[in-house]
Design a protein around this nucleic acid. Structure first.
Lengths: 346, 346
DNA sequence: TTTTTTTACGCAATCGTTCCCGGTAACGTT
DNA sequence: AACGTTACCGGGAACGATTGCGTAAAAAAA
């Protein structure tokens, strides 16, 4: 099946003009007489002419579409980021093509390869939790393809970056637990490779330090897939709960980590927050409906998407290669609910 | 910024051949000698040649990308559908371009217009709750653009359709409430325009009828935006709870309707399921973490996405316009949890 | 009236690819 | 020797749009 569109040629033929004249008339060139212009414009509107974007892309060697590499859209944080991206992209006439790595390095490489061969003008990337080797990204970067990182950035690649204030978010969350009387605060962390993991762990450490509390290295557990696989959370939580000094609170540093931690507690009969308090990074919009309602650090995902798309499009449309790049840090906010209620004396 | 790709011309020049020969060698044409073929293939691999998809699109008059129109990706049901779509689309070499209507008719029209002018080979559509007039869809359909409906279909347009068994899902959910002792079962329904609304309401009615229970018309409340706006749920629930015979159970027919119904109960101090039992259509993956855990009718969203993408691509790639269309009905499954526990005698 | 300038348009190249026509060898057949 | 086959390859026209350049006619200047 095919559906034939109207071309500039059809207009030219119908009006007895050349294609160049029609093209110029449509672009309102000065060297076309007002009468001709009006005639063309009217006819074009009448037959609902639309310039063929593919022909334009070929001519201008740009596709007006950007590729987005994220772990998965079924994650509130990322779906909100995408909303932000689409918002600015569409307003500037760009298409958005989304591709999910599902926290797999291999899929990330394959997807980027696929998209980059499909004439993408630039990439918006949040690397997978498994990604340790950046050759596939550096490769495209070196060939001059505009790239902007969101959330999970790569320090060694010099380009625009948009992140939340992970350090402060983690610091605030941990400090909140401390103030509410928790003494043994564990950290259920994301993959060690990720920038956000390091930043959040640093905030966690600093909070403990500022409160003159010792960091028990056994309280730090990493999950390579960011909690996407329940078993890794199960393993990590078992490690924590079998510790000789069982923690009384957990600071989880990702959406899935937080919810799967709750799942674990349900399964094991651990009462939140009496047995174990929980605060986690999460952008879920129904944390208050959970049982108990969940205290979270929330990132400004929509804005992050907007800003990163703006920066990417700016890079794409700049005449010459940029040399100055910025890193935008947006605030993360702590929402206190029941899962981290003041510690009960018992 | 721009990044220059290798073209067939570069290969031709480097190897002293014509572009036609190179093209044919790459496509393994019989009229090219094995030696030439190998030479071209080797060199192409060496310099990492990738055919320019845009040039191909122009030539073949197809873009190998499909447009998806849904209400919003931040909804588990739709994000799962998209996963299914991407899964088959990517495996067949198609790009997926997603566009969200956010349950707005106007946005749906604008987005479809935008995408159809961007050389889409076909559409996968789940109409918005507001969509009552189908002219924008019929228009494209009449011009021969392949279209497949998912979930929310339009009866009057003859094309492939993929839906869940809404009637049975609703019937099962309602029957389950009846069996658990609930006598006054209300139905919090989606927009009246939607096909799914009618199908689910029919299942609800049938279940009541089969149980020899009267349908109280006051128990049927519609929400024009499928619960996306809290206030409409608030209004509808107030109508229900102020009914002279206050219902003791609610069957909600959409994801957001269900969760916002819970929100309402929280806000009003209505205890679930003691004061009001709830069963709803939902594809949330953390219904068991809610308080109380939520009984749901779950749709096979991923499969629906897969199947619909398959049907769409089949339509796109068929040589002549199809005349026979199928409607695939996939099973929906009821998961019973605490929100619809057996009615307590009190 | 002649020359110059301006106006308004067409020609053709271009983007990267495919594919319809050729064309030219080197054979084999009569 | 003359012709037909076969194998291989190149030229060039598409696909739809833009754009530099050329140029006819009209207008302005000489």
């Amino acid at each position: 099946m095919k559906f034939e569109a109207v071309t500039i040629k059809d207009i030219a033929k119908a009006l007895g003009l050349s294609t160049s004249t029609v093209s110029r008339a449509l672009r309102d060139s000065y060297e076309i007489s007002p009468e001709t212009k009006q005639m063309v414009l009217e006819y074009a509107k009448q037959i609902n002419y639309r310039p063929n974007p593919i022909a334009l892309s070929l001519k201008e060697r740009r596709s007006r579409s950007i590729g987005v590499i994220i772990s998965e859209i079924a994650n509130s944080f990322f779906s909100q980021i995408i909303n932000g991206i689409e918002s600015t992209a569409y307003s500037k006439g760009y298409n958005v093509i989304i591709s999910q790595s599902r926290e797999s390095y291999q899929r990330e490489v394959i997807n980027m390869d696929f998209l980059s061969s499909r004439s993408i003008d630039g990439f918006l990337i949040s690397v997978s939790t498994e990604t340790e080797d950046f050759a596939h990204i550096r490769d495209l970067y070196d060939r001059g393809l505009p790239i902007v990182f969101v959330d999970r950035v790569i320090d060694s690649i010099d380009t625009h970056k948009v992140i939340a204030d992970n350090f402060k978010g983690a610091y605030d969350a941990t400090t909140h637990l401390i103030k509410n009387g928790y003494k043994r605060i564990a950290h259920l962390a994301n993959s060690e490779y990720l920038s956000i993991t390091k930043e959040r762990a640093a905030g966690y450490r600093q909070a403990l330090e500022d409160a003159k509390m010792d960091l028990n290295e056994g309280y730090l557990q990493h999950c390579l897939h960011g909690g996407m696989i329940y078993d890794e959370v199960d393993y990590a939580m078992n490690e924590l709960m079998n510790h000789k000094h069982k923690p009384d609170a957990v600071f989880a540093s990702a959406d899935k980590l937080t919810t799967n931690c709750m799942r674990y507690c349900r399964a094991k009969g651990i009462v939140i927050p009496d047995d174990l308090a929980i605060v986690g990074f999460s952008n879920l919009d129904l944390t208050e409906l959970l049982s108990p309602s969940l205290s979270v650090v929330r990132q400004p995902a929509f804005e992050m998407g907007e800003v990163s798309a703006e920066l990417l499009i700016k890079t794409i449309e700049s005449k010459r290669p940029l040399t100055e790049f910025e890193t935008r840090v947006l605030p993360a906010e702590l929402f206190i609910r029941d899962s981290s209620a003041k510690k009960s004396k018992k």
